[in-house]
Simulated scan of single mutants.
Amino acid sequence: MPEGGKPAAAAEMRKHADGFVARVASSRLPLDYTVASLRVVDFLIDGLRKGRANADPARLDVVLFGLGAYVGEVLARRAGAVWVDLDEAQRAYFGQWVGVRMPDGRVWSPLGKVVNRYEVGAEESLQTFYLTLPGRAAAPRPATERESRACAAR
């Protein structure tokens, strides 16, 4: 849950992700909304797991929420997902108020995936989650050299 304790809305999630990235920018973490940066998120959560005995639960919730917002925003920017407010049944299933809808219509909970990564460990890798996620938009393929020359000639 974000700082302040009220449930987040889908329309606010990009702002939450960007705010989290801004807060950790001084640590020089490469959180650049790429798929590769999800490996950094996995490492960050591993560190949180190691320090869990001394963790302040309220602070931990804020950090996990920020990481979940970031993961969801990677899905939005790289896989064509859209943030959505979850309906009552989805909230009960995921235990979250917001999620993402993939281009194929499937709904996922990046916030829940981050919590799972924290609670379960490495087998819940967020980078692997992205790479095996069904329903992603096809990545645009780079133009071939021949196609680039043809466009330039027009």
Rank of each mutant, 00 (worst) to 15 (best):
T128H: 13
E124I: 03
R106S: 14
M13D: 01
S26F: 13
E73C: 07
R78K: 15
E119K: 10
D46C: 08
D32K: 04
R59G: 14
V100G: 01
Q127W: 12
A11M: 06
D18V: 12
I45R: 11
L38N: 08
F43A: 13
T34C: 07
D87N: 14
V114S: 05
R78C: 10
P134S: 14
L60S: 06
L44N: 03
G99N: 08
P134C: 15
A139H: 05
P2H: 04
R106I: 00
V84G: 00
Y118C: 11
W108L: 13
P134R: 15
V115W: 10
S27M: 14
A36N: 02
A81V: 06
G105E: 03
L31F: 13
E12K: 11
D85L: 12
R117V: 06
D85S: 02
T34A: 13
V71M: 12
A10W: 15
N54L: 09
I45C: 06
F65S: 04
F65L: 08
A69D: 04
E123L: 13
D87P: 03
G66S: 09
W97D: 09
L86R: 03
R91P: 00
A89R: 14
L29S: 02
T128K: 15
R91D: 02
R49W: 06
G19E: 11
G105M: 12
A79Q: 00
W108Y: 14
V74C: 09
K6F: 10
V71T: 09
G66K: 11
A69R: 08
V24M: 13
V107G: 02
Q127C: 04
W97G: 02
L64S: 01
G80F: 15
A76W: 11
A89I: 02
E3H: 08
Y118L: 12
G105A: 05
E88A: 12
P57I: 04
V40F: 04
G95P: 05
A53D: 12
A138F: 05
A10D: 02
H16M: 06
I45L: 12
R49N: 06
G5S: 13
V107Q: 04
M102E: 07
D46E: 15
L86F: 10
